[in-house]
């Protein structure tokens, strides 16, 4: 027998989300969505637990997690930065904005800063093409972002700025 370790509150959180969806296999995507929004990511141990709760194979759970780019197995930063690289944002300079975020934070796409504060990901269209290029930090949307504004956006989330601490 091999043991998989998870913190008690994580087990409770995941079990509650699964129960909310009646532990139905068909609700896997909703369960993963809910779990990621609570935990920030979907580590292997959590996928094992979800598979058990929904009575399905962990390979299938992993298959879904790796199919959708939204799901991640690496912990996201406290302030996840998402740069839209959809068509409209792309043609209006999203690439340069992305490069500037990477340069300022010394971070690759899909990675998280050592202090766990920021992570960078790309997404495709948030439905605000009129504001292109669009950047999201957590739930907050920034429109018509230029590379010059990047430093300011980051600084909003640095220590000493309690307005956006959570």
């Amino acid at each position: 027998m091999s043991k998989i370790k998870l913190a008690e509150h994580v087990i409770e959180t995941v079990q509650a989300i699964c129960a909310q969806y009646n532990n139905e296999e068909g609700e896997l995507i909703n369960v993963l969505h809910g779990t990621q929004s609570k935990l920030g990511y979907l580590p292997a141990e959590v996928q094992e637990l979800i598979a058990k709760e929904l009575d399905m194979s962990v390979a299938k759970v992993y298959g879904v997690v790796t199919f959708y780019s939204f799901f991640t197995m690496t912990p996201m930063g406290k302030h996840p930065i998402s740069i839209c690289t959809g068509t409209a944002c792309y043609v209006r300079g999203a690439e340069q904005v992305l490069e500037e975020f990477k340069r300022q934070l010394k971070l690759e796409v899909g990675k998280t800063t050592d202090d766990g504060k920021f992570s960078i990901s790309c997404l495709r269209c948030v439905g605000a093409c009129g504001l292109a290029p669009v950047v999201m930090v957590g739930e907050k949307v920034y429109g018509r972002v230029s590379p010059q504004q990047v430093r300011k956006i980051i600084s909003e989330y640095q220590d000493g700025c309690p307005s956006h601490a959570e």
């Binding site: 292997a44 996928q47 194979s57 962990v58 390979a59 759970v61 992993y62 298959g63 790796t66």
Partner: peptide, 19 residues
């Protein structure tokens, strides 16, 4: 047995065990 599943997508897709 549920060991194998298609994982990843597009060109990276492969049939593999979990993780």
């Amino acid at each position: 047995v549920g060991v194998l599943s298609a994982v990843n997508r597009g060109f990276d897709a492969v049939v593999a065990p979990a993780f």
